[in-house]
Write a protein that binds this DNA or RNA. Structure first.
Lengths: 187, 187, 187, 187
DNA sequence: GATGAATGAGGTTTCATTCAT
DNA sequence: CATGAATGAAACCTCATTCAT
């Protein structure tokens, strides 16, 4: 138990270190040795918790992505007005993208060499499902037009938020995004 | 002259091979030797046209990105209805994203180690400018609301198009994107 | 402690292997891989102890040269008659030159690309100082003429010993060298 | 004839360029391409005059070494006092060493991979012979002691002149060398 | 003859992975 | 369990050499 806990802690510690190094040094600068140093463990220890570097990356992608999905789900189901929930979702989405510095797809590609397509598709479907729920709820509540094709609209939401080089206030940008999308598909 | 032509041709040949290999093998699978083989030249020849691998990547990013910007500019300035121009733009954007398989940011990060920020910002500003032109034109023509803050709206357009795993017809998705955005900011 | 010892040992092991390979294969035949094999370590291990090949060469030049200087100093300060000390010095000098097979200058040139001049001068000054001490002692003891300019005479000693292709007994040659120089500057 | 002359010229031009590049860039910096540029010919042209790089180096070593021997022979046979002839010889010797920047042995080692020993010995014997002639002449003329073993004394002369880092006037150094040797073996 | 674009063998170096401690 | 010294496969890159023009 204590052991399991300590192990789980160290796993996390390594995963957190990994994304930190990734952000600082980029994908080609991501060395196992640096990850170990950043996690304050020995290099060999990384291999006690992950089969190899690819396994570490796969675990990282799943850890941060599922964490994002969990948050996204909670945010869109919160007891708040529709627009606020949308704004929270998009905000968290921008945060997610920023966390990866645009490297998500590249890391994901390294993380899984076989069955890549189905793995990616599986991940994305979970997000798509969350968004479809949100859209359906919006329609039910009269916030969104009833004649929309849910899957397509959810997809436009998923497609919203590629992080441009923001040289203006993030809040204003978020407001504008919400504004556009709500006007675009709102009732 | 003939030389310049041949040289320019071979440079292109290598760049085209590079993006092909990148798409097939991913970033970590991008070996100079494979690029050379794909371009049907010797390994050393790559180094006649590019200082090193980083230089090759930088040239590739610029080549494809500027090519995209050129097309984008032409498309939004075409003599067509506003919605069609928008659709063409978004279509080309999806194509651009698909071409890189989501690796654009990662490749760009490898391509430039110093002054990265200013280089990225410089590139993005060109795109932002094209979009601002488009938005301003739309306002002038009465297609878009006049009370919009041009830069923010252009930014929402830039943020539109992260390629999700499309499991429905691309055309329908594009139509929906256009629909949402035009409704969102249209007059 | 044990570590330091083991590390120092392995460093030495690699340096000894390097000069062995250098003598056998020449400068252009000096591959890091061969050095590693000769030192009975892996190729990568060499890079644990030396930043790169140039660093290895620099360390080698310093190691063998300082070792020679240390011996030279001890020999000229030994409690022996002047002529014997001179003979021991020249003998060690011939050994040093033979050890490098005439490649000292070439290896030194590879070993240091910047500040080469000051590095070489710095090294040589240590030798010159040892010789000047020896000459001064000789004058004090009445072995050498008192009207000599110490630095110049020390320099002639430094200039003595370019290894010709010896096709006669080394001992006789050494005796002759001693004879000439002592007659030349002796009291 | 004209052709032969032009060819011989171009050969020389390349050899002169080679030693220039060697002095400037060192042995590992000696690229055929740089030699060609320095000689103001095409890279392929070098291969019209020399079988390969090794052949170029062998020709260079022979060219400069035989040139030195020719000069040395003329200098020691000149109609001048003994000491002056000795001084001229040593002066030319220092010049020769300086010309190679200490790289003579290393270049010679690259220049000949097989029969290296006999080639080096053959070259050196020519120099030894010149020096023996000089010593014999000196004895005949009563300038040198008659009880000397000619070969050994000639060898000490050959061993004289390793170029130290001269930080005092070259002329004074030369005078001192002459002084020492003449005193050492003179009548 | 003269050229220099093209080549690829072969060198240097990195870094994921192992394993003895 | 944890470690990091050691390893060598595999990547990058150089440069001697060739050959079509």
């Amino acid at each position: 138990m204590a052991l399991t806990t300590r192990n789980a802690d160290k796993r996390m510690q390594i995963l957190e270190a990994t994304i930190r190094v990734l952000r600082e040094r980029g994908l080609s600068g991501l060395k196992v040795e640096d990850v170990a140093r950043a996690a304050e463990v020995g290099k060999g220890t990384v291999y006690l918790y992950f089969r190899d570097k690819q396994d570490l990356l796969r675990a990282l992608v799943e850890y941060r992505t599922l964490s994002f999905y969990r948050d996204a789900e909670a945010l869109v189901k919160a007891a708040k007005p529709f627009r606020e929930r949308l704004r929270d979702l998009l905000s968290r989405r921008l945060e997610f993208i920023d966390e990866w510095r645009g490297l998500w797809a590249a890391v994901a590609a390294e993380a899984v060499k076989e069955d890549k397509e189905s793995w990616l598709k599986g991940l994305h479907e979970r997000y798509q499902a969350i968004l479809e729920d949100f859209v359906e709820g919006g329609i039910r509540d009269g916030e969104l037009r009833a004649d929309l094709e849910v899957r397509l609209v959810a997809a436009t939401l998923a497609a919203l938020g590629c992080a441009p080089q923001l040289d203006f206030p993030r809040e204003a940008f978020l407001d504008q995004l919400v504004e556009v999308w709500v006007k675009g598909v709102g009732a």
